[in-house]
Amino acid sequence: MLKSLSSAVTWGLAAAAAAGALLTGCSSEAKLPKDELGDTVAEKLAAQTGQPKPDVSCPEDLAGKVGTTTRCKLTASDGTSLGVTVKVTSVDGDKINYSIKADQ
């Protein structure tokens, strides 16, 4: 149990400070597909923590509108999981900038 708690805390601390940006395909409204979003969030968290890339799944595409949020689920290699909120902070054409915050 201690290992699980430690892993969850590590991911939570890393995700609280994480931010990301990704270019999306051409369309009238920027949108980030849920699979790309989950993969990008996982890569950023792994890079920040030096831990293995977690599994991050998101239930929906992220619309490129400031203030839009979605909830994703992070599952670490030891099986612990955390909710992760992804919030659009700005949009510049097809580029969606977002913040990432894990549950405590």
Rank of each mutant, 00 (worst) to 15 (best):
E36M: 05
T40F: 05
G25A: 02
P54C: 07
A63Q: 14
A30S: 12
P59M: 07
Q51F: 09
G20T: 09
G25R: 01
T10I: 11
G20L: 00
E29F: 11
A46R: 06
A17H: 09
V9Y: 06
K34T: 00
P54Y: 02
D61C: 02
A42W: 03
V41G: 00
D55L: 15
Q51D: 10
P54M: 09
L32T: 03
G50P: 02
D35E: 10
P52L: 14
V66L: 06
T49I: 08
K31G: 01
A19H: 15
K53L: 12
S27G: 04
G38Q: 07
V66M: 01
A46H: 15
L45T: 02
S57Y: 07
E36N: 05
A8G: 14
A47M: 09
L32K: 02
A47Q: 11
G20H: 06
E60D: 06
G67N: 13
G20Y: 04
A17F: 11
K65D: 12
D61W: 00
G67E: 08
A15I: 06
A30N: 02
L32W: 03
E60G: 00
G50H: 12
K65M: 11
L13E: 10
G25I: 03
A63L: 11
G67R: 05
A30W: 05
G64W: 06
V9P: 01
G67A: 08
D35S: 09
D55M: 10
K65Q: 15
V56R: 13
W11S: 11
T24W: 12
C26A: 08
A21E: 15
K34R: 15
G67Q: 12
A63E: 09
G20V: 11
C26H: 01
C26W: 00
A19R: 14
L37T: 01
V56N: 07
E43S: 13
T24V: 00
G64N: 08
L45C: 11
A19Q: 15
T40I: 05
L62K: 01
G64V: 03
T40D: 14
A16R: 08
S28T: 12
Q48G: 13
A16Y: 05
D39T: 06
A17E: 11
D55C: 11
D61N: 12
W11T: 08
T40R: 15
E29P: 04
A30K: 01
S57A: 09
S7D: 12
G50R: 15
A46S: 15
S27L: 10
K53S: 11
A19S: 15
C26D: 07
K34L: 10
S28D: 10
P59T: 01
E43R: 04
D55K: 14
K53F: 12
C26G: 00
T49P: 10
A16K: 07
P59N: 14
S7H: 07
L23Y: 06
A42N: 04
T10E: 05
D61M: 03
A47Y: 13
T10K: 04
A18L: 08
E36T: 14
V9L: 13
G64P: 08
K34C: 09
K34E: 08
S28H: 02
L45K: 13
G67K: 07
L22R: 14
K44D: 03
L62N: 01
A8W: 06
V66F: 05
T40S: 15
C26L: 07
E60Q: 02
K65W: 05
Q48F: 10
L13H: 12
A63F: 03
V56S: 10
S7L: 02
L23E: 10
A14W: 07
P54I: 06
A18S: 13
V41C: 05
